[in-house]
C-alpha cells in the first residue's frame, strides 16, 4: 500500500473527532441535492436554506476551541496591577490580548495541525498569558451576517414565488415551462 493511502486512512478516533464536519457535509449534500432535484420552488428554497445552514455550522465549528468558553473577559481573569482603569479601557485591553492571540497563531503551526487547526488555537490559548481558554468569536460573528444574508435571500425568493404563482398559477417549474412553451 502506498504512503498516500496510508495517510488517507483514518482511525475511528479521528473519524469521531471530526463528527461536526460529517454533519456539515451531510447537510450540505442534502441541501444541494434538494436544490437541484426538486422542481417545486418552495422545496428548492428549503433546500437552499439547508445548504446555507450547513455553511453556518462549518464556520461555527471552526471557531470552537476544545474546552473554550465564550470570549468574554472577566475582571478576575485579567492580571492587572493597576485597577484604576475604567471598564472601557479594560475591555479594550482584553480585546487587544485576544487579537494578539489570533495574530500569534502563525500559519506554520496552523498547517502542522492539519485539517484541525482549532487544536493549534487551543494549544496557543493554553500557553498564552491567560489561563482561561476562549473560543474564537469571529466565525460566529461572521455567521450573524451570513444568516441575515440568508434571510434576505429567502425573503426575496419567497416574494418572487408569490409573484410567479400569481402570474402562472403554479410553482412547479415543469408546469411553468410547459405554460411558457405554449404561450
Amino acid at each position: 500500500m502506498s504512503n498516500d493511502l496510508l495517510q488517507l486512512a483514518m482511525t475511528a478516533e479521528q473519524f469521531k473527532g471530526l463528527y461536526n464536519y460529517w454533519i456539515v457535509i451531510f447537510l450540505m449534500m442534502t441541501g444541494f441535492f434538494i436544490v437541484i432535484s426538486r422542481k417545486n420552488m418552495i422545496k428548492t428554497v428549503i433546500g437552499l436554506n439547508i445548504f446555507q445552514t450547513s455553511v453556518f455550522l462549518l464556520y461555527i465549528t471552526m471557531g470552537k476551541v476544545n474546552n473554550g468558553t465564550a470570549p468574554i473577559l472577566r475582571p478576575e481573569d485579567a492580571h492587572h496591577d493597576d485597577h484604576s482603569h475604567d471598564h472601557a479601557d479594560e475591555a479594550d485591553h482584553a480585546s487587544q490580548i485576544f487579537l494578539d492571540q489570533i495574530a500569534d497563531h502563525t500559519p506554520a503551526q496552523n498547517v502542522s495541525a492539519g485539517s484541525e487547526p482549532a487544536i493549534a488555537l487551543e494549544a496557543l490559548a493554553e500557553t498564552g498569558t491567560n489561563d482561561v481558554i476562549y473560543s474564537n468569536p469571529l466565525p460566529s460573528v461572521l455567521m450573524l451576517t451570513a444568516i441575515v444574508v440568508g434571510i434576505a435571500t429567502t425573503a426575496l425568493a419567497l416574494a418572487l414565488i408569490v409573484r410567479i404563482r400569481e402570474d402562472y398559477g403554479t410553482i412547479e417549474e415543469d408546469e411553468i415551462l410547459i405554460l411558457d412553451r405554449e404561450s
Partner: peptide, 27 residues
C-alpha cells in the same frame, strides 16, 4: 430572477465555504 437567485445563491454559498476554509487555514 428566481432561477438566477437559486444559481447565484449557490455560487455565493460556495464562495462563502471557500472563504471559511481559507480563514481556517490562515486565521
Amino acid at each position: 430572477a428566481f432561477q438566477y437567485l437559486i444559481m447565484g445563491t449557490i455560487g455565493a454559498t460556495f464562495i462563502l465555504i471557500g472563504i471559511g476554509l481559507l480563514y481556517q487555514m490562515t486565521g
